[in-house]
Each structure stands twice: as structure tokens, then as C-alpha cells.
Nucleic acid binder design. Structure first.
Length: 981
RNA sequence: GCGCCGGUAGCUCAGUUGGUUAGAGCAUACGCCUGAUAAGCGUAAGGUCGGCGGUUCGAGUCCGCCCCGGCGCACCA
């Protein structure tokens, strides 16, 4: 370029309309986000949104309460972010969509930690009320902490007035749910064998069990029959058990009526023995036991064992053989050790045979997992005071811890000579989810919700009605329906009582003299009113709330009037509390109470067994319907190795730390790009990886908006019909993205929506559309229709892009909102803006879609050849090139439908980003060496030549007409015209 | 043990009712531009679609079996 040309270029540069914007290329998110959040809070953005949507169709995501303990980590943080994204999406769609966050504040872990702070147990001088106050303080501390952590993610909601399960209002509503259940006959108090955590000293529900691997010992034990069996003397019955510690509580042996049994004879330790076991298991068991030779004396069916009794191996008492249909021949011996105090089925068997004295199964194990001591042990075992104890078993187990004593029991049985065989084995065994200790079955008196009860006026059991309701809910992903149905079909009655104090009391009273429980609708109602006013502490405040004041005679059933009653000390399972949130929150909160049932519950998929299920049970029983219309679950957060995050492994971090280091928008974008139906790996590096998409979205928006510096929508927007074809095409593409993204959001497929957006920004906009529009925007006259046409499309697209990103990039789009030209009267925050449904006046135009689809295919072919010539140093930029497209007749015909050559060729030059395009439909291109066959377009050949023409110093194109306007020797005709205005 | 989900380029994932030569982003390599510039554009390389068998004119897609990973249920005595 000559010196003159350089000077001219500098001179004309000011006439080029280069992009301008204050919207920075870099996000600087970690600095900007806290300031923006402070502004939102100050201006009460959430309140503004609420006011703006008032009267809209309601659509509520009801928050499942996280537990008020520990940090809000990536998992809980993700859950809040997903919820916020959905609420923002629905809000933008125009729904009235309040978000009331809540916390689960009662329960064992908090009680546990508070006790730990106090040195392991409640100090003598401390009252229950004082201890409960410590628990409340503890929970409230974590509510505050987690609230702060959640807020850093940019999640909007009623953070000032969250629901807490400890508030008197909440507590009283939990009791109202109980009252309704009681009223309808769902509540039973009964002796049953339940899962018991001796470490937590409490009954546990199914949802509170976790299966962990554990080594145990299994024993094959001979129980000596008292009389002949099948006409043979001195016979033993062989049982198998994996819980030797339950032997003291053995009451019977169960056998299968129809199974075939064998009576075998063999030598052991030099003595001859006769033993009964299932024929099918005979070989395996005897071989395992080291019996090398044996002979079968008899075969008979289980039925033949009717009336047989045996001597208890510890106590010597006479015990029966009974029949039970749960006896299988998969494991063991076909003769089942039955201890009603320590097994569900055993308990049923015991109950059916009416073995329980005074309604008490034999259960010699205390709440802490020790055998009882002395008189109590004797009483629990139903042993008379003068019972002979020749082998010293009584002293042997007296007061011992069952697990520690397990092996000792085995050894003593071995010494006694009754042990045929024992072996260690690994199995998965239910553990307490909080203390991670193995649970036991323990027969106790508990409160239950009877899921197979048919209430008055109904024809179906509650279980069936829940299953019906499940079908009315939309489950995302769809397999959730199967999972929860299977759980409900198979679940036992719900044991809702816990023997702790950090919770809501089950409002039962007892007459200690008669053992009768005093409870009625009126008594419960009375307590509900007191709890609503004073909180559940009334139950524990003996000084101010003695029983007579808690339950005056006036509200008691007649038989309890004037009696000395005692408050019972069970509390509700925390799941009963959180499961009542539909009542305590959805049906109570000022903003929510007319919006029941909720539109959506959104939690981790472990809640099928937890919150979803208990919510369904309680809501169907008391309201007759599911408390939610849709249910969305996400998989768990894992680390880069696919391992579940845990604090001890150090592969999980507090969400606010992640926000501080990486920014909320990046985390949100990362979660929005993840397939939440599969385990979601979360590491700093992976989240940083989302930065690529973030930059692309941000810079694409910036490219669009920087070309709108002189564009005022209500003055300059071009009517749809007057837009240039390429711009109409861009709007059509934009419309497609709107439809795609909206559809994905409706199905809660966040990652599909994000992918569509990123692809649109990356390919359609950045690589295709924006690249091609530059000449029009920079070089055409400021007010020219062709430039205003492009700007109109840019504006619409930038606006749509921004809005479609808003539920995810809540901070970034708010910043964008400040930099995009707006119509007068638009709201101050993007979060008050509506969700886009149409790209301006634009619409899908399939003719344009395929027309430009073909042009960009031609571009790809030309690019390939251009690139080769670039590498050969023949050309540099595209404007140095002249592209000849050799096309066959068919392709020419197709191209001709877009317009005559004199308009088509310039349009192609624009689309291909070169100075000149010539269409050649006449030659035999395949025969011509300078033409290169296309790889993806049939009938196309490409020839590229360097242009000798001088480049216009203003628009850089080599159009062949530079200098044709005398006054502007260095400009092309178009630019000269523009400069002269 | 039963069931569900997944296995596609080095990494993260798309692949619609079975239909041309299996796609995208990132990363890599090589270039261009210097008027989106701590940006932007282009090109290339990279795949036995977990394995085997079957149905079909045609299979990443449908069927069967198997292997690997994850999850759920059950493991009771």
C-alpha cells in the first residue's frame, strides 16, 4: 500500500461505523456479582417481581427443606440453583411464581451435635427445655449460615421469611396433619418389631436406613427335640442364624409345611448325632459343617413336624415348632430360628400364635443395644425368679452389649456342644443413616400410620389411592414414576414415633396405672392450639405446663377425667414433619395458600424414598390429592472419579466458596449444561470449562450490541417486510432457537436448552451471520436501509439471546440489560422482563432456512479452497479472492430461484465473505484442473483466484471500481457514495 | 439375585419414527485477520458407535446374550 493510500485509509477511518460498547469482553463476575446482589436486595427485586406478577396464573415450586446442619455444599447449592432457574423461567413466562425457601430444623443430627458440644450427654442440671433451646440456637445458626451461602448463587426468594419446621405455626400444622390422620383412623399405637438404632436410641423408618457391607458370623445350631421325631429318639433340629445375639430371645422354630426335610445321622467328635434339616440343603450344609459321611434315616414333609417341641438352648424351656410361609430353602437349613422380639416376620408369627404375655414379645435388649440387667432381664425374658440356670447363661449375658458379646455367645454355644458349624461372611446390612452403626430389630411399642387403612367414605386403601395419585403426577425423568410406585407398593406401615426429644411431641397421654393411652380428636386439638400459641416446648416445660394444665379434665374423654396422666415422650419422625410441609407451608403461607397443589417438587432422586413419598402419603391421606403436579429429580453431585461427594473425602466444597472463586453465573451455567438425570461431576476445572461457553455467549452478545450504538428501536427499527433476506433468515433461525429452548425448559432438560443456545451463538451467529454482516454495518451509510435492517435483526436477536439466558446467567443478563437499546417504559431489571415467544415480528421461514442453508454450504466449500490458497500464500483475507462457482444445471436451477445472477452474485460474495463471486454453469468443470470438486455439495466445483484489483481503503474489498469517483481516488464506488452522503 | 440407566473422537456430550460419507464444543496442529482484538474466522487430524450374534435391502438406532460403570430394590431367619 502506498503512503498516499495509508493516509487516505486513516482519513476515511472516521467514516467507518465501527462497533462501540461499554459492555466489557471480560465478565469480571466475581467482583460484579456481590454488588449486583446487594442492589437487588436494596431495591427488593424479589418484591418487585411478586408485585408485577400478582394476578398471574399461579405456578409454584414448593421448596423441599434442606437440613439445618453443616455447609450448603455443591449438591444442595445445585438444587437451589436449579430451583431458581425454574422459578425464573416460569416468572418470565408470566406466572405468579413465589419462592419460599425452608429448612428442616428438628431431628437427631442436631440433637447429636448439641449433645456432643455438651460432652456427650445431657448434663444433670440442664432441663429438657434448656437443651431444646440449645438445639434451636444451633439450627437457627445454620439456617443463617446456609441462607447466606444460598444467596450468593443469585437465587431470589422470600429469604426474610423462610419456613422453619421449628416455628410454632409449622409445628401446630404438623400436629393438625396428625389430628386428621387420627380422625380418619390411620393412626395405630402398637407393639411391633421395628428397625432400631441403638446408637441413636430410636426407631428408624425405611428412609433412614443405609445398606453398608459388614462382616458377620452365621451359625448352624442344633436344638434338641424333647421327644421322638418321626419315630426316632434323641434328635435335634438344625437352625441357621446370622444374629447369634438373638438366641436368648428364641421362642420357636419355623418350618415350611410343604418342604421336604431329612433326618440324618452322622458322627461328630466321636459321637453319633441325629439332626433334622431341609433335604434340599442337606448336602451343602453337612459338607460345610465338616461332616464327611452321613446317612438319611428318614424323609418327611414339614407338616410331619407338627407338635414337635424342643428345649431352648439357653433356658431349657419347652418351645414349639410352627409353620410359616416365609421359610425358604435358599439359605440356612429350612428351619428358622424365630425370635419375635428381633424380627418382623418372627414378630408376626409370635403374634399369630398368641405367645406374648401381657402383649410383650420377648425382647431382652435395651434401647442402647445392651441386654437388660438383673430383674429387668428376667422380666423381659419371661423367666420366673426360680428358673434354673444350669449353664450360667443368665449371668453370661446380663447387661452385656449385644454386638460386643456376639462372638462370646457363639463360643459358649460351641462349648455347650450344640454348634454344628459357624462361619464369617460379608453381607450388606442396614445401618443407621446418621450414626452409621448397624441397626437391629427390636420389638417396641410405636405409633404407626397404617397405609392399608380404608377410611370412611373411601373404597380404596390409602396405599392404592397414593398409587392412583402417582399416575396423575408428571415425573421427570419418567422412570421416577416406576421407582416411587414400586416403593409405595412394597412399603410397610410407617413407624412415625422416635424416642428422642428434639422434635415435635406426639400428643399422647398415658394413665400409668392402667397403661391406657389417652388420645382423642379433642385432646389433640387442645394441644394443637397450645403449640400454635406457645410452641412445642409446652410439652417439655413441666414447671409451667403440668399435665393438668396441658390437658384439663374438660377436654379429656370421660374415662380419663380426674386421673393422674403422664405425657408420653415420643416425638415425630422428622420425615413426618417435612412431609407435612404441604399443609404447614403450601396451605398456610399467605402467598401460597390459594395455590395448592404445588406445580413442582424438585429434589435429588433419593427423595423418591424420602420427601416425595412421605409428602404423598400425608397429603393423599389428609387432602385426597398429591401435593405436587410435577416432580423433577436430579442425580447426585460426584467428583471427577464419579465418587459421591463427602466432607471426609474432601471432594466437596461449600457453594459460596465456589461462587467466590468461580462466580455464581459460571456455576449456574455449568449446572445448566449438565445432564441432571445422570451423576453430575463437579470440580473447579470442570466448572471453569463452562467458561468457554460463557465467553462465547458473552462475546456474541457483545458483538451484536456493539453494533447498536446508534440504534434507537422506536426510531430505526425496520419493518419485517422491508428486512433483507439474510436478516429475515437470522430471525427465522432465532425463532427456531426460541422454540427449541422453550421446549427444553418445559421438559426441564436444561442441558439441551443450553446446548441449543451455545450452538446458536457459536455457529449461527458468530461464525455465519455476524461475520457476513460486517460490511453492511461498518461501511454502508448510517441510515441506509441495508444497515438499519441488519441492526434491527441484531437488536431482536441480542434481546432474545439475553432473555433466553436470563434464568441461568442471572447476573450477566442483568448487566446486558443495561447495555441493550430498549423501548421506553421497559422495566429496570431483566428479571421483570417476559420470556421471548417470537423473534420480533419474525417467524419461521422454511424457504429462507433452506436458501441460506445452501449458501452457507457453498461457503464451507469455498472456505476449504480459500484455506489451501492461503497456506500457499496466494491470498490472505477473503477479500483478496475471486471465487468462481462451477455449478451443474440442477444446482444452477436451484440457485436461480433465489434471484437473477446480477443480484445473486453480490449476495453470494457477501455470504462467502469474498470480493467477487462468479457463477459458471456452462463449462465441464470436472475436466478443468483449476476447478476443485466440492465434497459435500453435489454438482459444485470451486475455483479461487487472487484478485489483482486495488482494495478500497475504506471497505477493504477489491471490487474493481476503486477510483472511479474522481474525488475519492482510493475508494470504491459504493464507499465514495456513502462518504459523500 | 431382580430391575433401571449409561458405555459414540484425547475430554464433555448430540444423534429425532432404522435411511446418503456418525455430528458439535473443548483440547491439539496449521493458517488467516488485526475494524468483536486478553477477541474473531478458517482448515486439518482424530471414531472397530463396549463385545458377539440376530432381524432387515439397510443397524449407533430394533432384538438376544455377554462385558464394564452407576443407581434402585431385595438380601429376612
Amino acid at each position: 500500500m502506498t503512503e498516499d493510500a495509508k493516509a487516505a485509509k486513516a482519513r476515511y477511518k472516521s467514516t467507518v461505523l465501527l462497533p462501540q460498547t461499554e459492555f466489557s469482553m471480560k465478565g469480571g463476575l466475581t467482583e460484579k456479582e456481590p454488588a449486583l446482589q446487594a442492589k437487588w436486595e436494596e431495591e427488593d427485586l424479589y418484591g418487585q417481581i411478586r408485585a408485577a406478577r400478582k394476578g398471574g396464573k399461579p405456578w409454584v415450586l414448593h421448596d423441599g427443606p434442606p437440613y439445618a446442619n453443616g455447609d450448603a455444599h455443591t449438591g444442595t447449592g445445585m438444587n437451589k440453583i436449579l430451583k431458581d432457574m425454574v422459578v425464573k423461567f416460569r416468572t418470565m413466562q408470566g406466572f405468579d411464581s413465589p419462592y419460599v425457601p425452608g429448612w428442616d430444623c428438628h431431628g437427631l443430627p442436631i440433637e447429636h451435635n448439641v449433645l456432643k458440644e455438651l460432652g456427650g450427654k445431657k448434663p444433670e442440671e440442664m432441663t429438657s427445655v434448656q437443651l431444646r433451646e440449645r438445639c434451636l440456637e444451633y439450627a437457627n445458626g445454620y439456617v443463617d449460615k446456609q441462607r447466606g451461602q444460598f444467596k450468593t448463587t443469585g437465587t431470589l426468594g422470600d429469604w426474610q421469611r423462610p419456613y422453619l419446621t421449628t416455628s410454632p405455626e409449622y409445628e401446630s400444622n404438623v400436629l393438625r396433619v396428625f389430628r386428621d390422620l387420627f380422625d380418619k383412623g390411620y393412626i395405630t399405637r402398637a407393639q411391633r418389631s421395628v428397625h432400631w438404632s441403638w446408637a441413636a436410641q430410636s426407631a428408624l423408618a425405611e428412609a433412614e436406613l443405609e445398606y453398608e457391607d459388614r462382616e458377620d458370623v452365621s451359625i448352624y445350631l442344633r436344638m434338641r427335640a424333647r421327644a421322638q421325631v418321626a419315630g426316632v429318639d434323641d434328635v435335634a433340629l438344625l437352625i441357621w442364624t446370622t444374629t447369634p445375639w438373638t438366641m436368648p430371645a428364641n421362642l420357636a422354630i419355623a418350618v415350611a409345611k410343604d418342604a421336604e426335610y431329612a433326618l440324618v445321622e452322622y458322627d461328630r467328635d466321636g459321637k453319633s448325632e441325629r439332626t433334622v434339616l431341609a433335604e434340599e440343603l442337606r448336602e451343602a450344609v453337612l459338607e460345610k459343617s465338616g461332616v464327611t459321611e452321613h446317612k438319611v434315616l428318614k424323609h418327611f414333609r414339614g407338616e410331619a413336624l407338627a407338635g414337635v417341641t424342643y428345649s431352648h438352648p439357653l433356658w431349657g424351656s419347652e418351645c414349639p415348632v410352627v409353620f410359616a410361609d416365609y421359610v425358604t430353602l435358599e439359605d440356612g437349613t429350612g428351619l428358622v430360628h424365630t425370635a419375635p422380639g428381633h424380627g418382623k416376620e418372627d414378630f408376626e408369627t409370635g403374634k399369630n400364635h398368641d405367645w406374648f404375655n401381657a402383649d410383650r414379645p420377648v425382647c431382652p435388649v435395651s434401647p442402647t443395644g445392651h441386654y437388660y440387667s438383673d430383674d429387668r432381664l428376667r422380666e423381659e425374658l419371661n423367666l420366673p425368679a426360680n428358673h434354673p440356670d444350669d449353664n450360667g447363661w443368665f449371668a453370661f449375658i446380663n447387661g452385656k452389649q449385644i454386638w460386643k458379646h456376639n462372638d462370646n455367645v457363639v463360643e459358649k454355644l460351641r462349648e455347650q456342644g450344640d454348634l454344628l458349624h459357624s462361619e464369617k461372611f460379608m453381607h450388606s446390612y442396614p445401618h443407621c443413616w446418621r450414626t452409621h452403626t448397624p441397626v437391629i430389630f427390636r420389638a417396641t411399642e410405636q405409633w404407626f400410620v397404617n397405609v392399608d387403612h380404608v377410611e370412611a367414605g373411601q373404597t380404596k386403601t390409602l396405599r392404592q389411592r397414593i398409587l392412583d395419585e402417582i399416575k396423575n403426577v408428571q415425573w421427570f425423568p419418567a422412570w421416577g414414576e416406576k421407582r416411587i410406585s414400586a416403593m409405595v407398593e412394597n412399603r410397610p406401615d410407617w413407624c412415625i414415633s422416635r424416642q428422642r426429644f428434639w422434635g415435635i411431641p406426639i400428643p399422647g397421654f398415658m394413665d400409668p396405672e392402667t397403661g391406657k393411652v389417652c388420645i382423642s380428636t379433642q385432646t389433640v386439638d387442645h394441644v394443637v392450639a397450645l403449640v400454635a400459641e406457645h410452641g412445642s416446648n409446652v410439652w417439655y416445660d413441666d414447671a409451667n405446663w403440668p399435665v393438668d394444665k396441658l390437658l384439663p379434665d374438660a377436654v379429656r374423654p370421660d374415662e380419663f377425667k380426674g386421673r393422674e396422666l403422664k405425657k408420653m415422650d415420643d416425638i415425630f419422625d422428622v420425615w413426618f414433619e417435612s412431609g407435612s410441609s404441604h399443609r404447614a407451608v403450601m396451605l398456610t403461607n399467605e402467598e401460597l395458600k390459594d395455590k395448592f397443589p404445588a406445580g413442582l417438587y424438585l429434589e435429588g432422586d433419593d427423595q423418591h424414598r424420602g420427601w416425595f413419598q412421605v409428602s404423598l402419603i400425608l397429603s393423599v391421606a389428609t387432602q385426597g390429592v398429591s401435593p405436587f403436579k410435577q416432580c423433577l429429580t436430579s442425580a447426585f453431585v460426584v467428583d471427577e472419579n464419579g465418587l459421591k461427594g463427602s466432607k471426609s473425602k474432601g471432594n466437596i466444597w461449600a457453594i459460596d466458596k465456589g461462587v467466590k472463586d468461580l462466580s455464581a453465573d459460571l456455576l449456574r451455567l455449568y449446572f445448566a449444561s449438565s445432564n441432571t438425570s445422570e451423576p453430575i461431576p463437579v470440580t473447579y476445572d470442570l466448572v471453569r470449562g463452562a467458561g468457554e461457553s460463557y465467553r462465547k455467549l458473552r462475546n456474541t452478545f457483545r458483538a451484536l450490541v456493539s453494533n447498536l450504538f446508534d440504534f434507537v428501536p422506536d426510531k430505526h427499527a425496520v419493518k419485517y417486510d422491508d428486512l433483507q433476506p439474510l436478516d429475515k433468515w437470522a430471525l427465522s433461525q432465532c425463532q427456531r432457537v426460541i422454540d427449541e429452548v422453550t421446549g427444553s425448559w418445559e421438559r426441564y432438560e436444561f442441558h439441551t436448552a443450553t446446548r441449543a443456545l451455545v450452538h446458536f451463538a457459536n455457529v449461527t451467529l458468530s461464525s455465519q451471520y455476524i461475520d457476513v454482516c460486517k460490511d453492511r454495518l461498518y461501511c454502508e451509510g448510517a441510515e441506509s436501509v441495508s444497515r438499519r435492517s441488519a441492526q434491527t435483526a441484531y437488536w431482536v436477536i441480542a434481546d432474545v439471546l439475553m432473555r433466553l439466558m436470563t434464568p441461568v446467567l442471572v447476573h450477566t443478563t442483568e448487566e446486558m440489560w443495561q447495555h441493550i437499546p430498549r423501548w421506553p417504559g421497559t422495566p429496570d431489571s431483566v428479571h421483570l422482563a417476559p420470556w421471548p415467544t417470537a423473534a420480533g415480528e419474525g417467524k419461521r421461514d422454511t424457504a429462507l432456512d433452506s436458501r441460506f442453508g445452501l449458501l452457507f454450504k457453498l461457503k464451507a466449500e469455498s472456505d476449504r479452497v480459500l484455506d489451501r490458497l492461503r497456506k500457499e500464500k496466494v491470498i490472505g483475507k477473503g477479500y483478496d479472492a475471486h471465487v468462481t462457482l462451477g455449478v451443474n444445471a440442477e444446482l444452477m436451477k436451484q440457485l436461480a430461484t433465489f434471484g437473477p445472477p446480477e443480484t445473486l452474485e453480490p449476495e453470494l460474495a457477501e455470504a462467502l465473505n469474498v470480493s467477487r463471486v462468479k457463477l459458471d454453469g456452462a463449462s465441464d468443470h470436472a475436466a478443468l484442473q483449476e476447478f476443485e470438486p466440492a465434497t459435500d455439495v453435489k454438482g459444485l466445483f470451486v475455483k479461487v483466484q487472487a484478485l489483482e484489483d486495488t482494495a478500497c481503503v475504506r471497505c477493504f474489498r477489491r471490487t474493481g471500481d476503486v477510483g472511479s469517483v474522481k474525488e475519492h481516488a482510493f475508494l470504491c464506488t459504493r464507499c465514495a457514495g456513502v462518504v459523500d452522503g
